[in-house]
Amino acid sequence: MSDLAKKGITEVRNKKLLPNLSKEGELTKEIVLSTKEKHGVPVGSRLFSHHTLASVRKLSFYHPFFLPKDSLDLVLTSTYNQSTEKFADKEDLYIQPETIGCETWRRLRNAYHKCPVPRIPMGHPMKRGGIKERKSPFSVQLMNSGVHSSQTNPGFSRKPAGGAIFFY
Rank of each mutant, 00 (worst) to 15 (best):
P137H: 10
D70C: 12
S157C: 10
D73R: 08
F167D: 07
P64D: 06
E26N: 07
R109V: 01
A88I: 01
P42G: 13
N20D: 15
K159C: 14
V75N: 03
H50N: 07
L59T: 06
Y168M: 09
L33Y: 06
R57V: 13
I95K: 05
S55M: 00
S22F: 10
T52A: 06
F166A: 11
S2H: 07
L74Q: 02
N144P: 04
L72Q: 14
K16S: 11
L17H: 01
R109K: 14
K132H: 12
E37S: 09
R107L: 05
S78D: 00
G8Y: 12
C115G: 10
S55G: 05
A161W: 15
H63K: 15
E133G: 02
N14K: 06
P125N: 09
L4M: 11
F87M: 09
P160E: 04
L142I: 11
K29D: 03
I31Y: 01
F138E: 08
T104W: 02
K132L: 15
L53Q: 01
F65W: 15
L27C: 07
G123E: 00
I120R: 03
K16P: 00
G101P: 00
S136M: 08
E24Q: 08
K16A: 14
F167Q: 03
V75T: 13
S45Y: 08
L47A: 12
K15M: 04
Y168W: 14
I120D: 00
D73I: 00
G129D: 03
L72W: 06
T79S: 11
E103K: 14
T79R: 05
L76V: 08
K86N: 14
G40M: 03
D73F: 01
L142W: 12
G8K: 01
S2Q: 02
S145N: 11
V41T: 01
K7V: 13
Y112E: 02
L59I: 01
T99S: 15
N144H: 14
G162M: 09
F65L: 12
T152W: 04
I100L: 12
C115W: 14
H51Q: 09
K6V: 05
S22R: 11
Y62M: 04
R106F: 07
G123M: 05
V12H: 07
I165Q: 06
V117P: 00
R57M: 04
S60W: 15
K58W: 09
K6D: 05
F48S: 12
Y80C: 11
K16D: 06
